[in-house]
Design a protein around this nucleic acid. Sequence first.
RNA 1: GGAGGGGUGGCAGAGCGGUUGAAUGCACCGGUCUUGAAAACCGGAGACGGCGCAAGUCGUUCGCGGGUUCGAAUCCCGCCCCCUCCGCCA
Length: 418
Amino acid sequence: MLDIRLIRRDPDAVRAALARRGESDVGVLDQVLALDVRRREILPRLEGLRAEQNAANQAIAAAKKAGEGAEEAIARMRAVAGEAKALGEELAQVDAQLTPALSQLPNLPDPTAAPEDTVLKEVGEPWVPDYEVRDHLTLAGERIDMERGARLSGSRFAYLRGDLVRLELSLVSWTLDLLAEQGFEPVIPPVLVREEALFGTGMLPDTEQQIYRLADDDLYLAGTSEVALASLHAGEILEGDTLPLRYAGFSPCFRREAGAAGKDTRGIFRVHQFDKVEMFSFVDPSESAAEHERLLAIEESILQALGIPYRVVNIAVDDLGASAAKKYDCEAWLPSQQRYRELTSTSNTTDYQARRLDIRHRPTGGMKPEILHTLNGTAVAVGRTLIAILENGQQEDGSVALPAVLGAYGAPAVLPPA
RNA sequence: GGAGGGGUGGCAGAGCGGUUGAAUGCACCGGUCUUGAAAACCGGAGACGGCGCAAGUCGUUCGCGGGUUCGAAUCCCGCCCCCUCCGCCA
């Protein structure tokens, strides 16, 4: 949600910023401005009537207490009440249009968000084996069981089996330890969430077609624990010295992948359900840019420790989700595809989600509460990370050398050939 | 799922149609007292929005949304949440 006061104060700047996203939200912006003007006409008049009512109420109460009649005043107030009711309805009508219009506007992009996808750096060698390259499915064999997954649940579902389960669990434990050292509290959140939570993170109405909804309950399957983590402090005022608050959510994630028909159909690169460790930060507004770099650095340190070649991309403004002001993706090198594919992503959502979820903090010194900033970043998207580990660790005989850091967490040193 | 009870300021807890934004206690902030602290005493203090340079002022706010009324924390309806008992269950 954008700050209506900012829109009011400097509509041209907001218009210019939105234009960078390439969408035609201009009509919506004009609508918001017009509705805001109407609202601000109605409100003072309504408040005037309310003030009159309040004053009269005291007089009537006093008169009754003194044992006097107050018929005249009551009759007069009956008319005022009618007028106030009509104005109130008019106001409600305006709000019923203003709120949806305002909430459909995306966040303003950060000035440093790139006009086009921009590769910031490459780390590690984008290599291709000098023997015949195998992709993750060939390397995993039945340990990634797509056939039976499809029989059970349809396409884009898989059973993860055997050693790969141990690998996942070790990967998750290792990641949570690494994040704990960085001040992230581990969280296992609910994955079924109410509409408000999805609205609050900007997933609704933005990405509705991506989200599973339950038929008999008003609940949705969250596509990321970001949803639950953002809502962790919804409606709260956090005292100044409690920030920053950092959480590491671990949960399954559910995506309908509607509109992705025929895309990435082989293996588990794009599936309806996967596990993910997600970082989420609540910070002072002045700190969010630095926190964003921090999240990116953590993502990079994880990829480096796992020995995955990757590059960092500053994502184009017109490709940002509704809530993001700026986004970095880390793309891992996949030898079987001979290209970089998205593995993690971190966004600075500034005050956009916090305003929708009403999350504030009181700066130290006891001043007025203000909207804080939130950020999110993938620590480990398990499925895709397994792909990158398998493909980059592959050896000529079809076995896979696993990252040494995971050994202490229960992962074998080598995955035998399928 | 069935039967009850309940959601009031940071916390506890009164109020159950009228000068109640809300008693009282605790916590908090300032002051007096004290060498300093504690205690005691005095005072202050919620959040959001409008107007205003400011002081201030008006409106909203007693889980959320509607309704009744000149007037709702108080009455009515819907929703959400919490607690107790029964049933079911990993």
